[in-house]
Design a binder for these strands. Structure first.
Length: 542
RNA sequence: UGGGGAUUGGCCAAGUAGGUUAAGGCAACGGACUUUGACUCCGUGAUCAUAGGUUCAAAUCCUGUAUCCCCAGCCA
């Protein structure tokens, strides 16, 4: 499709400025996830912005795992993140780990110590917090702040050598305890954690904090434009302070933008992890989650996600995107790519009384009327078929365009049928319809003498293949509570020729929307379909 | 009684060295078409948070006010 590149935005203007002024010849961006969970569509937005920007201006983009806190991280996550980025269709210029720079970071911290710009603080966490002051109360300097450079060199070296307990000491930057920006009140730059790191093993027992590590990582890699989300605006002064005082040659520039928020879903890693850990969902790739792996399993395409992110744009205002927008781009992308096929997700048996029960015929059906290149297929027809329960009603409302007693409708790709008799069980449930068909009305015959009361889909009963259908709804409702009906499962039938469908194959089922074969639960002889998105307003009665 | 951001139609979002009827997308609502109530096609909405000011002229400049978001992890 003719999607527009990201609309013009403030980040582009900054880049163009920096390029035109000669500040940079090439730009370099980076995507710096912490490997502490699976990435979601919000991360995808950041990935797309970073890669698209670099591509548009002839630069490059690095992937860097910001693994400065071994307590929360795991290799499982680094693998899933790489996999998801590739699936989105991006290739990073080079791969890095913040932990690759631990030696250099330590040396740079020592530069700070030697300049008298960092000190070892022996205070308890509680004391540090107390001395930091509050939003309206200024912070106060403690006695450790006055330690000599020699003592600090010695103490910091011992910290690194593992002579102290976790939490007993920290290294702090000496900036300004009286700053109105709390983040500048002598931020902690190293903490002690005797914990095995997933990349560096037991080499280190002190780990750098984000505020210190991130600007150095960017500078070391020669990142020119370091994009992050709005909550880091307050951190920009620290970012610049470390780049300058650690004598970094390269001077990266931090630019903040609003994170993606969407209606009816959960976009916080913490909450997603909770849903996974408490087994409320199937795993990080549950089709109801906005994780990349969940969206992929559900059947969303990378193209659709990219088109969506580009359409949403980039700005600095906190916004809540209507998830209808995402659904739109998924339908748009699938429209010409997926075959239209018939599936009955809530079957009602129909016997065609004037069709010979020993007879059998094959009808030609187009795979996609909007994309003739997809060709045609042959589908069986006989005296026994299934139609959708919802397509029959005993008392027809005014604008009902489907079947009811006495009415005639077209079976898609086949004949007109007319309902003559309704069969119910002892509970009054409709279990079968007796209909007659009109051979004159065969699809493609050009029959025009009568107009049917609509067109409905069906599958031939004797050869139909059983399948399970999973219909998803928002994981949370309007009140932000967990939606207990976020998954509805039904059992029905699909066309015979779909029995060899492969996981992730996508189809449009008439009136029900787009479906993908589930990649986890579809096994030999068992077909499971995830509904990707419903068709727009498909069942609404005007 | 701190600091940093934001505020353009229901949801996003262009537009900011002031100057014709304030782009576009999503949603909604009409109508046409239709062998999917889909698709497609046509049509419909804002004076730019608010109050003043500067100007021949302001969403764009100035001043005040309101509302929302972020910051007091040895998380990122």
């Amino acid at each position: 499709m003719e999607e527009a590149k990201a609309t013009s935005n403030f980040i582009k203007k900054i880049i163009i400025d920096d390029l035109e002024s000669g500040k940079h010849k090439k730009i370099t961006t980076r995507f710096p996830p912490e490997p502490n969970g699976y990435i979601h569509i919000g991360h995808a937005k950041a990935i797309i912005i970073n890669f698209d920007l670099a591509e548009e201006f002839g630069g490059k983009t690095n992937l860097r795992f910001d693994d400065t806190n071994p307590v929360k991280e795991d290799v499982e996550y680094v693998e899933s993140i790489m996999n998801d980025i590739k699936w989105l269709g991006y290739e990073w210029d080079s791969l890095h780990y913040a932990s690759d720079y631990f030696d250099e970071m330590y040396d740079r911290a020592m530069i700070l110590v030697k300049k008298g710009l960092a000190y070892v603080d022996d205070s308890t966490p509680e004391k540090i917090s107390e001395d930091r002051g509050t939003l309206t109360k200024t912070g106060i300097e403690n006695k450790y702040r006055k330690r000599s450079i020699e003592d600090n060199i010695d103490l910091f070296t011992r910290m690194k050598n593992g002579e102290y307990e976790d939490g007993s000491r920290v290294l702090r930057a000496k900036i300004d305890m009286g700053s109105p920006n709390i983040n500048m009140r002598d931020p902690i730059i190293y903490r002690i954690a005797h914990k095995t790191h997933h990349q560096t093993g037991d080499k280190w027992c002190i780990y750098p904090m984000y505020d210190f590590a991130h600007p150095l990582e960017d500078a070391i890699e020669g990142i020119t434009h370091s994009l992050c989300t709005l909550e880091f605006e307050d951190h920009r002064p620290i970012y610049d302070w470390f780049v300058e005082n650690c004598d970094m040659e390269a001077v990266p520039r931090q630019i903040e933008f609003a994170r993606l928020e969407m209606t009816n879903t959960v976009m916080s890693k913490r909450k997603l992890k909770q849903l996974v850990d408490e087994k409320v969902v199937d795993g990080w790739d549950d089709p109801r989650l906005p994780t990349i792996s969940g969206l992929r399993r559900r059947g969303y395409t990378a193209e659709a996600i990219k088109d969506f992110a580009r359409a949403v744009g980039v700005s600095k205002s906190n916004s809540l995107i209507d998830s209808m927008m995402l659904e739109h781009f998924v339908r748009e992308d699938l429209k010409l790519k997926s075959p239209r096929t018939m599936a009955v997700i809530n079957p009602l048996k129909v016997t065609i009384t004037n069709y010979d029960e020993n007879e059998f015929e094959l009808l030609e059906a187009e795979n996609n009327q909007e994309n003739k290149e997809m060709g045609t297929r042959m589908i069986p027809f006989s005296n026994e078929i299934y139609i959708e329960k919802e397509d029959f009603i005993e008392e027809s409302p005014k604008k009902w365009k489907r079947l009811y007693p006495g009415a005639e409708v077209r079976l898609k790709h086949a004949y007109f049928i007319k309902c003559n008799e309704v069969i119910k069980d002892e509970n009054g449930e409709i279990i079968e319809l007796k209909c007659t068909y009109d051979p004159m009305t065969k699809s493609g015959s050009g029959f025009k003498e009568r107009k049917p009361n609509g067109t409905i889909h069906w599958v031939e009963a004797k050869k139909a293949v059983p399948a399970e259908f999973r219909l998803y709804d928002s994981i949370i409702d309007e009140d932000g509570e967990l939606n207990k009906e976020s998954l509805v499962v039904t059992h029905g039938f699909v066309e015979e020729n779909m029995k060899d469908s492969k996981p992730i194959d996508k189809y449009q089922f008439f009136r029900h929307g787009y479906f993908a074969v589930d990649s986890k639960d579809t096994k030999e002889g068992r077909l499971v379909f995830n509904r990707i998105v419903p068709l727009k307003s498909s069942y609404r009665m005007k």
